[in-house]
Nucleic acid binder design. Structure first.
Length: 231
DNA sequence: AACCGAGTCAACCGCGCGGAC
DNA sequence: CGTCCGCGCGGTTGACTCGGT
C-alpha cells in the first residue's frame, strides 16, 4: 500500500466542489467541519470548507456593493468595536466578516493615501465632525445592544434611519478622515461588550449558531446556478 | 492594442479559545 | 488539572478585473 499523503487541495473552488459541499452540509449540518470535509469527498480541510460555506455558499448572503446605510453602520460599529469583523457582520444582515473586512481595508487604504496627500489644516476646519455625528447616533446602537429589542428588522430600520438623517449632507470623505480616533468617543475598546453577547439582533440566517438552518431554503439552489461567479 | 496601477474579493494562515477526554 | 482537537476570528496574500495612459 502506497501511503502517499495526498496534498490537500487549495485555491479557488470549482462548481463541482461547491455542489459537493452544499450536499454534505445539507446532510450533516454546518457545525462539524472536519467531518463534513471528510465525508464530502472533497480533498479540502474542514477550515477551507467552513470558509467557503460562510463566505460564499451560505444562504441569505448578499453580494455586491455596500449600501450607504451599510457603510454608515460599518463606520459606527467599527468606531465602537474596532476590528471585530465578525461582530460587526452580525449587525449587517447578509454580509460576512470577510466582506466587511475587505471593504474597510480598501477604503481605509484609499483614505489614508488621500490624507497623506491632503494634510492641509483647512480640511479640518469644519466644526461638525463625524464623531459628533456618531455621538448623536450612538445611543441608537447602544439601545439595540443593551435593551432587549425584539423586532430585528425594525431595529435595523431605525438605525439606518437615524444614521441617514445624521449623516445627511456629511461627506464620506470627511468621515473617513475622522474615524481614526475611536477612543475619543469614550468607547471601551477592551470591548467587554457584555450587552451584545446576549443580543438577539443578529441576522437569523447568519448567526454561527444556526445549526437549525432550514435546508429546504430555495436560495441555496438559486445560488448553485452561478457558483463562483464574480460580479 | 498593450501596459500598468489601483481596486476588489476569495482564500489561506496563524493564533487563541473552549469543549471533550 | 493538563492535553488535545476543532472551530472561529483577524490578518494577510494573491489572483483577477477594470480604468487610465
Amino acid at each position: 500500500m502506497v501511503t502517499v499523503r495526498e496534498e490537500m487541495r487549495k485555491g479557488p473552488w470549482t462548481e463541482q466542489e461547491d455542489l459537493q459541499l452544499v450536499c454534505t452540509v445539507r446532510l450533516f449540518g454546518d457545525r462539524r467541519w472536519d467531518f463534513v470535509a471528510k465525508v464530502s469527498g472533497l480533498n479540502r480541510t474542514g477550515k477551507s470548507c467552513r470558509l467557503r460555506w460562510v463566505n460564499y455558499l451560505h444562504p441569505g448572503l448578499k453580494h455586491g456593493r455596500m449600501s450607504p446605510q451599510e457603510e454608515c453602520l460599518i463606520i459606527q460599529l467599527h468606531a465602537r468595536w474596532g476590528n471585530r469583523w465578525s461582530r460587526i457582520a452580525r449587525r449587517l444582515p447578509g454580509r460576512t466578516d470577510n466582506e466587511i473586512k475587505n471593504y474597510w481595508r480598501t477604503h481605509m487604504r484609499k483614505k489614508a493615501q488621500e490624507r497623506k496627500t491632503d494634510m492641509s489644516p483647512s480640511s479640518s476646519s469644519s466644526s461638525l465632525t463625524y464623531q459628533s455625528c456618531l455621538l448623536d447616533t450612538l445611543p441608537t446602537i447602544i439601545s439595540i445592544d443593551g435593551g432587549d429589542t425584539h423586532d430585528d428588522s425594525s431595529c435595523i430600520a431605525r438605525v439606518f434611519k437615524s444614521t441617514q438623517s445624521v449623516m445627511d449632507g456629511y461627506p464620506m470623505e470627511q468621515i473617513w478622515r475622522e474615524i481614526e480616533a475611536p477612543s475619543l468617543l469614550g468607547i471601551d475598546e477592551a470591548g467587554k461588550d457584555k450587552t451584545c453577547s446576549s443580543s438577539s439582533f443578529a441576522c437569523p440566517l447568519l448567526t454561527s449558531t444556526t445549526s437549525t438552518w432550514d435546508y429546504s431554503c430555495p436560495e441555496l439552489f438559486c445560488k448553485m446556478g452561478n457558483p463562483g461567479t464574480r460580479m
